[in-house]
Design a protein around this nucleic acid. Structure first.
Lengths: 340, 340
DNA sequence: TTAGCCAAAGTAAACGTTTTCTTCCTGGCT
DNA sequence: AGCCAGGAAGAAAACGTTTACTTTGGCTAA
């Protein structure tokens, strides 16, 4: 149960520690004879290099840290998968930490991690990411994911939430909707803010002067249900709803169904994210597909670049555009003109 | 960008390295004056302890490794969440690695990890986990999750797949099904084997002598669809189907619907796992709920115990029982007697 | 034959901590 | 007044690697 050291291996193979080290690391000039003896001794003793010692002298950990606001749902497993796959290719290990709702916890986690990683991937969509920035000048490269980017870190990757929202609204309008409502995400969430901005901008462009109906949710199915009920009880209920994420959209569908209305004919619905569930609800949900796996991969690549370039500070920003996926929940013939 | 060392801090605070170390680690006798000076210096220099050095001298990493066969879908995000939450409480960091389909990769990953963690959590449901066991006497405690347990490791936690399968079959029988078929998981998967065993045993008990209809799938929706079509085209199609996981069950539902049959009246369906999707398909799917989050938490607790007890080798096994959740896909009045 | 050179093996320093000893000092007790 | 106890601070030895530098010895070339 007690790990054997390189010293033990060297002794067993009757060579110096240096030679043993050279064999273990592969790359150097050693006799075939020595190489063989060391390898045999190492496997006989179940030698595993002590990573702490190695990192101490090389000042490289071959590890990157990933900080998430939470680990809940398929979104996060996908992003972890993307990062993990990319990391394996680079020979990097992945240190994961979730549930950093409040700033204090997030800062503590960053501090705890920064001593043991070569770089940090941080996802912190809550608006106080500036405070987070203030809490650190960090000694390791940092890349933010889907966060407000205020000059913090060596790079950033995010989803074009604004553009996605525009596309959704335009789509609903094109399908004939005239009174389009929006179910927002949490006010302090950066991505939610961007989606709201996209909605507002496009509405102002397409229906100048018209008042906009919006309700706030917290990204849960339940809150989507509540928000939709509220919208339906208005004097002029919407004929199209853009919902800030799919989970809330599922709740909204339920509310509409309960009200005895038809989707998409009475109310067309569009979500955001394209979670797997979206295909299976009835009717299947139109949404904006985000390549979360790709997002993760690219985030890691960005970080690796930042690590290699040390601090040449050429801060790259990547924006990923979501893709509109039209399903039954918003498929209808344009018959507005006739009806209105 | 270059981390400052304890030496720097000590110099800045005009104390010895030893004193600085004492302050940083909190617990020791130091003057309030010294403590203050060191703390100020540390924060001024953005000092972060070098974890490698620390682990070198303490021979403790405060990190546990998690090896997964894959990271795909909500099951894995839940298990990671459970482990991560439990780890945070214990002050442990979590090193995650997925995608270890084949033995070679899994072994390599274990080797790479074992030098940098205090313990290992391994999930390897493929049957060759014995080979895995052969590949290691490892220098760190190891706990297996949902794997065949052949005396490997310091502990094990698994789901009662056998019992769950029994419950599912009994439920279908109780609801009036007489010809119950089974859609299996991959033959080499240990959990799938157990579910098959539960099915066979219960069928033999309830319907002695009857022949059993089973089809193999690979846990994907698509394979479930195919398997169900095959079953329906038999001369005596089943009136109840137990499907080895929910994803395949979703595919099966589709196949039944396409065949113009009704669920649950013509064919009752039960899945396994209770993935979130199960509630939303139509009709909502009966299934066996597995507390994946809890599974993760308990797995970590087990590992922590193993780490603390060094090698007192009291190998604990925990078995988690799934809970039957009855939804519309198997709700029907018992009217078999009248019909047959 | 011998100086010089190259490859292969070895020596030892360094990496940044923790921690065990020392050392020093202050203060209380006899 | 002298001595001992005890607390605070410092010196230095680990921990297990890597690697720059030194040594060794065999071989070639003059």
């Amino acid at each position: 149960m007690k790990g054997s050291t390189l010293r033990d291996v060297a002794r067993a193979a009757e060579v110096s520690i240096a030679s043993a080290s050279r064999v273990i690391n592969g790359i150097d000039s050693v006799t075939e004879d020595v190489r063989e003896r060391v390898l045999k001794a190492a496997s006989a003793l179940h030698y595993v290099p002590h990573w702490g010692a190695r990192s101490l002298v090389k000042s490289r950990t071959n590890t990157v840290g990933l900080l998430l606001p939470d680990i809940y749902g398929e979104f996060f497993s996908e992003i972890i998968r993307g990062i993990d796959d990319a990391a394996r290719i680079c020979g990097l290990h992945l240190l994961v930490s979730g549930s950093h709702g409040d700033l204090a916890e997030a800062t503590a986690a960053m501090y705890a991690m920064s001593g043991r990683v070569d770089g940090l991937l941080v996802m912190s969509p809550s608006a106080d990411s500036e405070d987070l920035a203030a809490a650190l000048p960090l000694s390791v490269p940092l890349v933010t994911i889907g966060s407000r980017i205020e000059g913090i870190g060596q790079g950033a990757i995010r989803i074009d939430n604004f553009g996605g929202a525009c596309a959704a609204v335009r789509h609903l309008a094109a399908t004939g909707c005239r009174r389009i409502a929006f179910i927002r995400g949490p006010a302090e969430n950066f991505e939610a803010q961007e989606r709201l901005r996209g909605f507002s901008a496009t509405m102002a462009e397409l229906f100048p002067g018209a008042e906009m109906q919006t309700r706030e949710g917290d990204f849960t199915e339940h809150s989507g249900y509540g928000a939709m009920r509220a919208l339906l009880s208005c004097t002029a209920p919407p004929d199209g709803v853009f919902v800030a994420n799919d989970m809330m959209a599922v709740g909204a569908l339920l509310a509409i169904k309960e009200a005895g209305l038809n989707v998409p004919d009475d109310v067309a619905v569009t979500g955001f994210d394209d979670i797997p569930l979206a295909r299976f609800v009835s009717p299947p949900l139109s949404t904006l597909r985000v390549g979360v796996y790709e997002l993760g991969r690219q985030a890691l690549d960005l970080l690796v670049n930042a690590i290699e370039r040390e601090n040449e500070s050429e801060k790259t920003d990547i924006v990923i555009s979501p893709e509109l996926v039209v399903r039954e929940s918003s498929k209808r013939e344009i018959r507005r003109t006739a009806e209105t």
